[in-house]
Structures are given as structure tokens and as C-alpha cells.
Simulated scan of single mutants.
Amino acid sequence: MTLTTSDTDTARIVTVSTTRIDAALAIRFKDDMRAATDGGPLRVVLDLSAVSFIDSSGLGAIVASMKQMDPSRRLDLAGLSPTVDKVFRLTRMDTVFTLYPTLDAALAEAAGQGG
């Protein structure tokens, strides 16, 4: 699993470059996210554009990643494929995370341009 990060004025973007977040990768994902979200802006946007499959372990890893961040920080999700989006909505995780159709939409919201 590879996570890359970049910072804007208002957010740290963490991009997932694997197609699956599942039981086989969940622990590594949590560890990688802890490192990727250490410090930086208060808002973190997790870009899931490359992810086409997520299971309950992957979902749990994303929730755990949010919980291991400082409470003053926020984790938003962007670029969910229809399959991944469906998992978040069926499990009601769309009430926990703010979901954006694209990374650009998430960043535009941060800039106050709607979202």
C-alpha cells in the first residue's frame, strides 16, 4: 500500500494508490495513515479515487485513522467510487465523514466555493 501526502494552505491531502482496502491491508493502512497525518493542517482529505473495493476491515481502518488523529482535526473523504460510496452509505458512515465526489470538490469547499 502506498500513501502519498501533499499540503495546501488549508488541508493535508492523503492519496491512496491501491485499488483495495481490505483485511489484508487494514493494519498497514492504519499505520501508514498515522504517519501521514502526523502534524500538518487541521483538515485531512483522504483521496480514495484509486480505491474500487473496501470491506469492513478497510472501513474500520479509516474510522480508526480518524480516531487516532487529534480531536481538533477533521478527516474528509473524496473521490469515492460508486462501490465504495455505497459501503459508506449502507453503514451510515456518511453521517460520520463528509464525502465529496472528487478531490477538487473537497478542496473547493475548503476555499469557501461550495461543495
Rank of each mutant, 00 (worst) to 15 (best):
S52V: 09
T37E: 08
A11N: 07
I54R: 06
A24Q: 12
I21F: 06
G39I: 01
K67G: 06
D22F: 13
S65P: 08
L42F: 03
D31T: 15
A35W: 14
I13T: 04
G39R: 05
L46V: 02
D38N: 14
Q68F: 02
R34W: 04
D31F: 08
A26H: 02
I21Y: 04
L25K: 04
S56G: 03
G60R: 10
D9P: 01
I13M: 06
I54K: 04
T15E: 10
I27P: 00
D47C: 06
T8F: 11
Q68R: 05
A11W: 00
R20W: 13
T15N: 03
T18S: 13
A24L: 14
M66V: 00
M66Y: 01
A64V: 02
T18G: 11
G40A: 00
S57I: 08
L46Q: 05
S65I: 02
I62F: 02
F29V: 08
A36Y: 07
R28E: 15
A11T: 01
S65M: 05
S17K: 00
I54D: 03
A23T: 07
I13C: 05
V44R: 01
L48C: 12
D47P: 10
L46F: 06
L25M: 13
R34I: 06
A61Y: 04
S17M: 11
T19E: 15
A23E: 12
F53E: 13
R34Y: 04
A61R: 05
T10H: 01
T37N: 08
R28N: 13
L25S: 09
A23V: 15
S52D: 15
T8D: 10
T19R: 14
V16H: 05
S56K: 02
V16C: 07
A26W: 00
V16D: 03
V63S: 11
I27M: 08
V63L: 14
V63T: 10
A24W: 09
D31W: 04
D31R: 12
T8R: 05
A35G: 10
A50G: 03
S17N: 08
R28S: 13
R12E: 06
T18F: 11
V63G: 11
F29T: 05
M66C: 03
A26F: 02
A26S: 11
L59Y: 11
D55M: 06
V14Q: 01
K67Y: 10
Q68I: 11
R12H: 09
S56L: 06
S56V: 04
T37S: 14
A61S: 15
S65Q: 05
